[in-house]
Structures are given as structure tokens and as C-alpha cells.
Amino acid sequence: MKKFSKCLALTLATAASLSLVSSCQPAEVVNVFNWGEYIDEDLNAEFTKQTGIVVNYKTYTTNEMLYSTMKSGGASYDVIIPSDYMVARMIEEDMLLPLDFTNIPNYNDIDPSKKGLLYDPDNEYSVPYTWGIVGLIYDASTTSEAPDSWTALFDKQYAGNILMFDNPRDAFAIALAVLGYGLNTTNESEIREAYALLKEQRPLVQAYVMDQVFDKMGGGEAVVAPYYVGDYFLMREDNPNLGVVIPKETTNTFVDAMCIPKSAKNKTAAEQYINFMCSTDSGYRNAIAVGYSTPLVSVYEKLKANDELEDICYPDDETMARLEVFINLPPETRKLYDELWAELMIDN
């Protein structure tokens, strides 16, 4: 009994001290939902220091996961960073708030070529965070010649040493590129042809991966893998034999953009956060930490001046012209993608 009352006293004391803490002025909070490994983590603390707003930072791994989190309504975020086609889908489904650009003066620094893109033609809902390209990563120590085409991923000589995207949009884009079709095609027979190609490729594939690609390419497990060029630099730290090319057919170039969802509770803080991320200092630190291409002109100039530009991240205009940006597909096409993808994955 004595023990029990001791416990009780302790519990009460803890409860009392907790209530003391919570009775303090609650700090203003901005809830941010970003991709994993996609920021210089110190920047959040820096933002809090400058504004007094606490950053509650969470991460996700795919656009689809972001979409389902927002759609299921379980969470409330103030800033999210979907990619182009997902921005378009969210705009279409009325999930985003229009931004007040007077609160985001740093928007002026965004490269004009990254404004008014197809996904947000009137620049109402999004501010580019980074952009990038899907490239073909290969291990030079195990290939006789550097591949320059997506066909390497379908080449029997690499059987068992091929990694492939574990998401339908990116995987289909590669098959469509090999077949010479547009990456945004809605033509069912073209998509089915791409499916047939992926099905044929399946026995050659070692594994379907997303983030696991870092371990596998870094550890020399596979010879060729498609992935986002920005992440190549991280893999190269583990495996200096790795090289990357922009395949000669075409490939996807994407923009990840900061948006404010309808469910946001603190729009002003969200806009402050977006503005902060567009400052030269934040953009520069992010570019160094993340390795993706920056949409900020001043950051590009600074990288150039410091000789820190990776050419592959900023291809010339001629190369850029043959790359394709994903647009949001109509629901029928999305459904077809989902069905074919599930079929491809279930096929044992």
C-alpha cells in the first residue's frame, strides 16, 4: 500500500509538472510534409530562429503516398511538396489553396523557365522547390561500355543485374520512351505495348526498388538502374565506379513544388516558410545537401561562381528540349496504369 501511494504521488507530481509546461504560451507551429532526404535539416531550426515559428517536419516517399495521406484526411499539413503531375491532380481535385505572392517576395528569384509550366499554368498554387531529371545509373566497373540508352534496362546481357522503378508512372515512362511514344500518352494500345515490354523485362529484373537503390547501387549489387540524377551523387559516395547518363531517347524532367493544401491551419506561416526556402541562402544550402537542381537564379549563379555546378543536373537547352514533363493523366488512364501495374507485380 505504501508503495502504491508513492507511485500515486509520483504520478501526480509528473502530471502537475506537465500541466505547468503546457500552460506556457503555445508556440506557433508550421506543419511541413516533404520527401525524405530532401532538405538541409539545419534550415528548419534556422527558420525557427528567425521567425519563432516551430517547424513540425514529416516526410513521405512517393507522390501517391502524399496524395493518399491528404485524401484520407487524417493529417493536417501547412506546406507540402508534390511533383508536377501531382500538383496538377491536386489542383484539379480542389485540394490546394491559391498562394498570396505578396507574402513570398523571393518568388521573383525563380527561373522564368520554371514558371507557368503545364501543371500550374497561371502560377497560382505552387512555388518550385527543386527540379531534376530521371537518368540511367550504371556501374562502370562491370560494364564494358557506358550505356547511353534505356534499352540497357531490357538487355539480356545484364539479366539479374537490372534494377527497376517500383512505381508505375516512372516505370511505364521508361518503356514508353524505348518504344518512342510520348510519356504522357493516353492511347491505350501504346500503354499496353509498354506493359508488354515491362512484362518481358520482368525476368531480367533483379529487384523493383525505390529508396533501396541507394544500398544496392552503392554496394555494387546491380549494373544498371534508373533513378533521379540528384540522388546519384549520394550513391557515388559509396561506390565511385558509378556513372550516370541522360538516355538518348527521352526521359522525364520533373519539378517538385511547394504548395499549401486546403486543410492548412496556418497559411501565413506556410507562406513565410515557402519564402524562407526561396531565399538564396536556404536554396544554396539545399542544393549542396540534396544534389537536385535549383530553380533559383541567384543560387545557380552562386554555385557557378563557386564552381560547384554538376553539369548533368543542368543540361543544355538542346537536351532539355527532348525531355518531357509529366502531366496529370485522365482518370481512365490512371486506372489503366494501376490495373496493369498490379498485374505486372502479381505475375509470379
Binding site: 512517393t62 501517391e64 503516398m65 496524395y67 493518399s68 508512372r169 494501376d338 501495374w341
Partner: peptide, 8 residues
């Protein structure tokens, strides 16, 4: 639910 095909 969370993956590539959102169809709860």
C-alpha cells in the same frame, strides 16, 4: 492505401 494505386 499508401502505394501506387489509391483505391481504398
Amino acid at each position: 492505401f499508401l502505394g501506387n494505386a489509391y483505391n481504398p
